[in-house]
């Protein structure tokens, strides 16, 4: 006994809302990076009224604001791209579902009433086709959802950098919970305060380190090695571990950058060649009034 196909309910995903969110995320992220760059640039004017041997350090103290805001903006822009791709793919899947629903409604007017349609091979075949079509549309939507979720989950969120150079491991994620900014309070009060170590003697640095919990010490060593690697008063073993950790993170960052640049170069070359090759075809396809775009690697 076959089941008569039923029309799927209305759209499961509000694609307009996703498009709107993607646009808003992109715009706010751009504003964030702009505000960070502006803060850093305007900070240079401080040199007009401040002359001291440490002026360069003072000028550099705002640089992490630019890098952190850019880093956040880059991650958020990646979310915006993933959402845009999802919205395009979900829109196509929803359109397919809607077309199937219309066909099913027509089919059911023919096959309604009793099960006599099951005796008609043509109607049975049509029932199967429509059932498959609904399942395929649903499958398409599920795949789009999963791809989007995977893309978002893989976006790295770098921990904030601190003064004194590349201080964090690339891709390091601030621990959740704990104190301010996701770090234990005894960590955040140091990383947020560029003046924390001012006037501290090596003995005072030793005394401070002894008050820091082992968990927070590990965070300093692995996530903010640049902050403590050169600090007199800390145990040599700690400084050694921090500096090794910093070297590893610097190497990883440089290798990642090298890979990114190589991929960019390769992509650019490929796009240029494809662009020339497909230029005419693309224009023809566009003017042909295609119904949807399935999205191709926007994320």
């Amino acid at each position: 006994m076959r089941r008569l196909v039923t029309a799927p309910s209305g759209a499961r995903v509000d694609t307009e809302a996703v498009f709107d969110a993607a646009r808003a995320v992109g715009n706010h992220a751009e504003a964030h990076a702009g505000a960070g760059a502006e803060a850093t640039t305007s900070w240079f004017r401080v040199a007009d009224g401040y002359s001291a041997p440490e002026t360069q350090q003072l000028l550099g103290s705002m640089e992490p604001v630019r890098t952190a805001s850019e880093s956040f903006s880059t991650a958020a822009q990646a979310v915006a791209r993933a959402l845009t791709t999802f919205a395009i793919e979900a829109e196509a899947a929803e359109a397919r579902r809607a077309r199937a629903a219309t066909s099913i409604a027509s089919f059911r007017t023919v096959a309604k009433g009793d099960d006599s349609w099951q005796q008609d091979p043509a109607l049975v075949a049509q029932n199967s086709v429509l059932t498959s079509e609904v399942a395929a549309a649903e499958q398409e939507l599920c795949e789009a959802e999963e791809a989007c979720a995977r893309a978002i989950a893989s976006i790295p969120v770098d921990a904030p950098t601190v003064m004194g150079g590349a201080a964090t491991a690339p891709g390091a994620v601030p621990p959740s919970g704990g104190g301010e900014w996701g770090y234990p309070t005894e960590v955040s009060r140091v990383i947020l305060n560029p003046f924390f170590f001012i006037m501290m003697t090596p003995e005072e640095v030793t005394a401070w380190w002894d008050t820091v919990s082992p968990e927070s010490q590990a965070i300093f060593i692995t996530t903010f090695p640049a902050l403590i690697g050169g600090k007199d008063g800390l145990p040599a073993k700690v400084r050694d571990e921090a500096n090794r950790s910093l070297l590893v993170s610097l190497r990883t960052a440089l290798e990642a950058e090298e890979e990114r640049l190589a991929a960019e170069e390769e992509n650019f070359a490929e796009i240029s060649v494809q662009g020339y090759r497909n230029d005419g075809q693309a224009f023809r396809a566009e003017s042909g009034g295609g119904t949807c775009c399935t999205g191709n690697g926007l994320s």
């Binding site: 952190a68 959802e145 999963e146 978002i152």
Partner: peptide
Amino acid sequence: GGGGSAIVQAALDDFAARATPLAQWS
């Protein structure tokens, strides 16, 4: 941004939790 998709919404909520400290840090 979830648009009614539970799986996408969960990924977005997770990203928001990871990125909020960085958003506030600057």
